[in-house]
Design a protein around this nucleic acid. Structure first.
Ligand code: ZN
Ligand code: ZN
Length: 377
DNA sequence: ATACTCGGACAATCAAATCA
DNA sequence: GATTTGATTGTCCGAGTATA
């Protein structure tokens, strides 16, 4: 859905990848549909390892873009990620797959592939902010709307849609017009559908060590309920709330590590998964720790049981600071507690549509800001 | 300075098409 | 049946704007 309907939390910060906590968007009353701006889709994907595909489909061709997340230090004004003074010496915006920009040495770096959660929570979705696999996600926790943190629903992909002939695998296209020869053998290693990182062929050929997400523990690490739960998926391991991963100094890059200085110790290097409320890292508490009313000191994992077994999410009182976030802005539509005002619709360029232009309005009070207030169009 | 909005790039998924 | 293609759908980056 477009963000618009619900409000998104202030993301001011939210956006930052990884550590940053994104601000959750509380959707108040939101219906969550899954889509944000774009309408959306279903599914739960598997984590594919990164492969190197050279760009393939026209649509998805990755041209790398200019912006390099890693390098940019998080400092946009709104970027909360920029943690308070306590922030670590390295940029918060660390992409799971490593940076892309130029290395200090001046060598072009490969842009790190952006990691996406399989299913963002409704709040983050609406706010178009980064979510995580935990539930409540960091952003929601940060904004005190953990109770509203639920997976968004994805719609099912359409079936039966005919597609034109594919280009021949041997490199010859079935289409007269696409004469372009396959790049480097053009063949994408089987099993590596799309994981290409828009690299030049040459670069793509170079096996880049897969960094499972520096900032986050491996996907499997989060033991939350299967977002996309597929029948065959094994139950996730115990969950460690990411928020608990305090930033730590990066270890010196391995001499042979092309990735450069990015690298956190793997999750297991971090302290135990126990995040009593009030123990949040400063950056998590953008607005101060949510008043905890219950479950103090409860092991984090408790909240992250497999879905089926999980008890209802704990309720967090909305932090006082958040109140102001409520959209009072006249311009905004906003928000009825239930919700949405606009209609979903936008389509992004590539097809993805931002959800509703009208925006979600949603939230009752606070939410607007917390959740993306509007859908992108 | 911080919070919020939102366009659009990028990522992931998966059914159709093709190959073996 | 296995593999690949490529459209669809979802995530969220990051710049721009608004507000405090
Ligand atoms: Zn979230
Ligand atoms: Zn959430």
């Amino acid at each position: 859905m477009p963000d618009s309907q619900n409000q998104s939390p202030p993301d001011g910060e939210d956006d930052r990848p990884d550590h940053s906590l994104d601000s959750p968007t509380p959707t108040v009353g939101t219906t969550t549909d899954a889509s944000e701006h774009h309408p959306t889709s279903p599914a739960a994907p598997l984590i594919t390892t990164p492969a190197t595909t050279t760009t393939t489909t026209p649509a998805t061709t990755t041209t790398s873009s200019s912006t390099n997340p890693n390098t940019t230090s998080p400092s946009s004004p709104d970027n909360p990620d920029t943690l308070p003074s306590t922030s670590p010496p390295f940029p918060m915006r660390v992409y799971p797959f490593g940076p892309t920009a130029a290395t200090p040495s001046g060598q072009p770096q490969i842009r790190a592939k952006r990691r996406q959660v399989k299913n963002a929570c409704t709040n983050c979705q609406k706010a178009c902010k980064k979510c995580d696999d935990a539930r409540p996600c960091l952003r929601c926790v940060k904004y005190g709307i953990g109770e509203e943190c639920v997976d968004s629903q994805r719609k099912e992909r359409r079936k039966g849609v005919k597609r034109g002939p594919y280009k021949k695998r041997d490199g010859k296209s079935s289409h007269p017009d696409d004469a372009s020869p396959p790049l480097d053998g053009a063949a994408v290693p089987a099993g590596a559908p799309h994981s290409g990182i828009g690299l030049p062929p040459a670069a793509a050929a170079v096996p880049v060590p897969y960094m499972p997400h520096v900032g986050y523990p491996p996907a499997a690490f989060y033991g939350q309920y299967p977002p996309s739960s597929k029948p065959g998926d094994p139950p996730p391991p115990a969950y460690y709330h990411p928020s608990y991963y305090m930033p730590m100094p990066l270890p010196p890059p391995a001499a042979d590590d092309p990735q450069g200085p990015i690298g956190y110790p793997m999750p297991h290097f971090y302290p135990p998964p126990y995040v009593p409320y009030g123990s949040y890292a400063p950056y998590m508490m953008h607005h101060g720790p949510p008043p905890r009313t219950e479950g103090v000191g409860a092991p984090v994992g408790a909240h992250y049981m497999p879905y089926s077994a999980a008890p209802p999410p704990p309720s967090y009182a909305r932090p006082p600071m958040l109140q102001p976030l409520v959209h009072q802005n006249p311009g905004h539509q906003s928000v009825t507690p239930t919700g949405v005002v606009g209609s979903p619709s936008g389509v992004s360029v590539n097809g993805a549509a931002h959800m509703n232009p009208g925006g979600e309005a949603g939230a009752g009070s606070s939410a607007s800001a917390l959740v993306g207030a509007e859908g992108h169009v």
